[in-house]
Each structure stands twice: as C-alpha cells, then as structure tokens.
Design a protein around this nucleic acid. Structure first.
Length: 477
RNA sequence: GGCGGCGUAGCCAAGUGGUUAAGGCGGGGGUCUGCAAAACCCCUAUACAGCGGUUCAACUCCGCUCGCCGCCUCCA
C-alpha cells in the first residue's frame, strides 16, 4: 500500500509503526455550520479509516475541536452568548452533519479548552528547552532554534521572512508564532505560568496528538490549506518538545473544494453548507461526488456534477435492490473485482478507480441476473466494498407521503371507495390499491385510464415500473 | 517573488513509455414493454494545452511557452 506524503513529497510504501494505526486529523473551529469543503476532508479520512480497517488494521483516530479562538469570541460577542455556549452548539451541529454523511465517529474528540493542562505542560517544556519564550504574558515559539523549520511546507526561512508579521514587537523574530496568548479585557481566559490567557491555535493539536497518540503518529491529515502555517508549526513544536522525529510519519493533505473561481471558505463567505447540500442530494451522492476524483486534487462544486453523482448512485442502489436470484444456473464470481478494488485503494487511496470497480461490478451483476445467474455473493461483495467507501446504498430518506391525495385519487377512480373511503389505510396500502385499479384497466386494455393513474401518481411523487414480476413503485428523486 | 499542483472526450474524472486511453453523467441506436419506466446490449477521444528534446517508441520522461489554481495571513 502506498500513500503520498507531503513531508517527503513522495509516494511511499505505507508501513505503520505498530499494529494500531494512529491517525490525527485537524478538526473544525466551531463557530459556524460546516460546509462541503469540510465534508470533503472528513469524508476522505473516513474512507481512509474504513479502508485501513478493511485491510485488517486497528485504527485509533483522533480529531480535535478548536473551541476557543478569536472567531469564536467575536461571534459569541455578536450573538450575546458565551464562547463555550457557541462552541457547544456548533459541536452538536458538526455531529449532526457528519452523522448524516455517514462519517464514522472517530475514537477521541478532544477539545482545546479541556486540554489546557497538557497544553501548558508542552509550552512549559518548550520554554525550559529554550525553544520558546514568554513576552508580555504571551508565549512564542522561537522558530530560529528549530533547524528544520519549513520542512513540511518546503519553504526556506529566508523566503518566508519578508512575509512574517511583527505583531506589535512582542516577538523576537517575525516568524515566531504564538503558543499562549495573553487575554485581552473581556476575553475568556485560563490561568498559566505566564498569566491569564488562552492557547494559540497550533499548540492544541500538538498537545492532543501527543496525549492521545504518543510522540510519533502514523498519519496526520487535513486540508492543504493547513500545511502552512498550522501543520508546519505543529510539527515544529512537537518535535522540539519530544525530541522525537518524525512527529508524524505520513502527512496526508486533501485538495480544496472550489466554488466557481475561488476555494470555498468561511472567510470568503462563498459556501454551501453540508445542510444545504443534504437538502438536495443524498449522502451517498455527496460522498460519490467527493470520492469521484483524487483526494489531492482540488474539486469544484457544481450542481451538474452532484446531479450526475445522484443518478450514478441510483444505479448502484438499483443493482443491489433487485435480489440475488438464488437457485440460478451458475454463480457469478466477484474476486477479480475485489482485487481491482484493493489494488486501486492500495495506490494512494485511488477512490475514483475504486468507484469505477463498483460500477463495473454492478453492471456485471445486472447482466448476470438477467441471464439467471446466482449473484448473491457478488451482491454481498458490492455491498461490502461500497461500505468501505462509506456508501449505504439505501434509498435516500424523503419526507413521508401524505395519504390525502391518494385517498382523493382512489375516490376518483373507484365507486366503492368513494362510497366508503377508508382513512385508516397506510399510504403504502393506498398506493397498492391504486396499482390494482390500474392493473384492471390494463387488463381491459383501457390504456388511457391506466396511463392517467400512472401520471397522477408521478405527480404525487410515486413512479411505477411494470416488471415481469408485476408492478413496483418507488419514490421519485 | 518563493513553494506546490493542474490542463485527458459535451461535462465530471482515472490512467499508462509501445496491445482496445478506466468509470460516471449526458447524447444516439437497439432489446424488453400496450406505451412508458427500470434494466441490459451497442455506439459516442487516431486523441490526452502548445512547442521542442530524450527514445526504436511519449499522452505518459525532460525543457520551455501559454492558461488555471492553492499556499506563503484566519481557513478542512
């Protein structure tokens, strides 16, 4: 199995340090709803986690919540709530959205505000070792003391220097970054050896990763926008504190979601939230959209592509929804598909290729089923492999149908029903009655009436399909 | 300016130094059907931004040009 590693810039053989693969993924700053760009990252790492487990690895997956920072404070002030209330609300929303996308819960979700002692311990250690210094109640990392600074983002200090910010002269060197920020009046704070304040952004991830996964982890992930400065600084702090390198063996970064010309981001305000997307498309379709291209490439959001994903997903669902045809004349084997799937995923999680295998398998199943093969085991394989990519293959949930219109239609068609309309019937039973009514018309070759029933049902959100085994119905998209 | 990436059919998107350049959507034709729908079958890139170079052979390696994007400031 090979993975692309941002640290080395190479595709490398994946050799985890032990039996359990440790993964740390940077989570969200909780001050607003998640958008599809976030979904892209978390769907990806969900697939990676699922695939590693499929391969037989044990996985320990940690993802933080940044629940204290400037944006949270500002937003909370605007809304007149406390930072922690705001953070709690959006943590709940995060879980709602990601659960809806069928993203497995990771094993530990640490929060910055609950890890202050560990954070202070790390900062204290860095100061003791001379890697950091206190200045006016804040603490900064002394970048010049870490020779490898820039090794993740592949930048040389000299090239970055002109861009650093002086930050009111509190820093020794422009590129030094904050480990601890002194509290301004009215801001939430925690006590520390340097005074009241709160952790800087990067330090929380170091502290949590070290606490929950140890000094050296297997996979560290996040969006490409985190490479610099966040991950660079995180790496710098962690290796300085522990003296152990690498802090993370494999750094995996996903490309960013674009919306039209620009990347989707909170600061640009051009975003589609996960909730908005889920109103229009099934979770499976959204996942297919994300997974349909390579994770390191940027992806552009478009309704057209999402719709294509929805239609494609429907075909996959269809293939699994039509039964196994057991007792057939021969059995359809699926091993070649499984191998292709594994080969694809082994090559730096080539999900686009893995998805293609699913479609090929679905076609083969459909074909074989028509020829009366037993496709039970192939169906199991399809469902299993789809599951590795996090597809449920379930019908998208739709709001329940109202019985009223169906009762109305039945009354229109049936004298009997008009005389004694039965309101105790479930909508499924009503639809079944309508299908039977139409069946009578068809037998009598009253095509106009039969087609009218079909048309009216479509208007009510129910599509009929006349199969050799009888008429079946399903909800329209 | 520095670092990284991209440019493949109408759209999305894999991929390979040399047999037929995946897959999805869309489109066309057909089977089935009273008609539909669904499903299935067939077709839909002599071509991979442009120009050079390396090679027996490049879309795939190298160089350059053009175009696009991300990061270098908070951001998945």
């Amino acid at each position: 199995m090979k993975v692309s590693n941002t640290l080395t810039g190479q595709k490398e053989e994946f050799r985890p340090k032990g039996k359990t693969v440790s993964i740390y993924v940077c989570g969200v700053t909780v001050y607003d709803d998640c958008h599809i760009g976030h979904a892209m990252s978390y769907v990806l790492f969900d697939v990676i986690r699922r695939y590693l487990e499929f391969k037989g690895y044990k996985v320990k997956h940690v993802q933080n919540f940044t629940d204290i920072d400037d944006k949270i404070i500002n937003r909370a002030n605007q809304l007149g709530v406390s930072s922690s209330e705001l953070a709690e609300k959006y943590i709940d929303e995060y879980f709602r959205d990601m659960d809806a996308l069928n993203i497995k819960r990771v094993h530990v979700y640490p929060k910055a505000t609950e890890e202050i002692p560990k954070i202070i311990e790390v900062i204290q250690g860095l100061i003791t070792k001379g890697f950091a210094y206190e200045s006016e109640g804040s603490a900064y990392f002394r970048v010049k003391n870490f020779p490898g600074y820039g090794k993740l983002s592949h930048q040389a200090l000299d090239d970055m220097i002109s861009r650093g910010s002086a930050e009111e002269g509190k820093k020794e060197y422009p590129l030094d970054f904050a480990l601890w920020k002194a509290a301004k009046p009215g801001e939430p704070f925690w006590p520390s050896p340097w005074g009241q304040g709160r952790p800087g952004w990067h330090i929380e991830c170091s502290a949590m990763a070290l606490k929950y996964l140890g000094k050296s982890l297997d996979i560290h992930g996040g969006g490409q926008d985190l490479i610099f400065p966040h991950h660079e600084n995180e790496l710098t702090q962690s290796e300085s504190f522990t003296g152990v390198a690498p802090f993370a063996k494999y750094w995996l970064h996903n490309g960013l979601l674009q919306l039209g010309e620009d990347k989707m981001s909170k600061s640009l305000g051009n975003l589609i939230t996960v909730k908005q997307a889920l109103e229009r498309y099934s979770a499976d379709a959204i996942r297919l959209f994300i997974i349909g291209s390579h994770y390191r490439s940027p992806l552009t959001y478009s309704e057209e592509t999402l719709k294509a994903a929805e239609v494609g997903m429907e075909r996959l669902r269809q293939a699994t929804g039509n039964g196994g045809g057991s007792g057939g004349k021969d059995v359809l084997g699926s091993e070649p598909f499984r191998h292709r799937f594994v080969d694809s995923m082994d090559d730096d999680f080539n999900t686009a290729q893995a998805v293609a295998v699913l479609f090929d398998l679905a076609r083969e199943i459909n074909r074989a089923r028509e020829e009366n093969y037993d496709v039970t085991s192939a169906l199991n394989t399809l469902t299993e492999l789809a599951g590795v990519l996090g597809f449920t293959l379930e019908e998208p949930k739709k709001p329940p149908l109202e019985t009223g219109p169906f009762i109305g239609l039945l009354s229109e068609l049936s004298h009997e029903f008009r005389r004694a309309p039965r309101h105790d019937l479930k909508v499924e039973q009503l639809i079944q009655l309508l299908i039977e009514t139409r069946e009578k018309s068809r037998k009598a070759k009253q095509w106009q009436l039969a087609d009218m029933v079909r048309q009216r049902l479509i208007e009510l959100g129910v599509a009929l399909e006349d199969t050799p085994k009888g008429t079946v119905w399903k909800r329209t998209l």
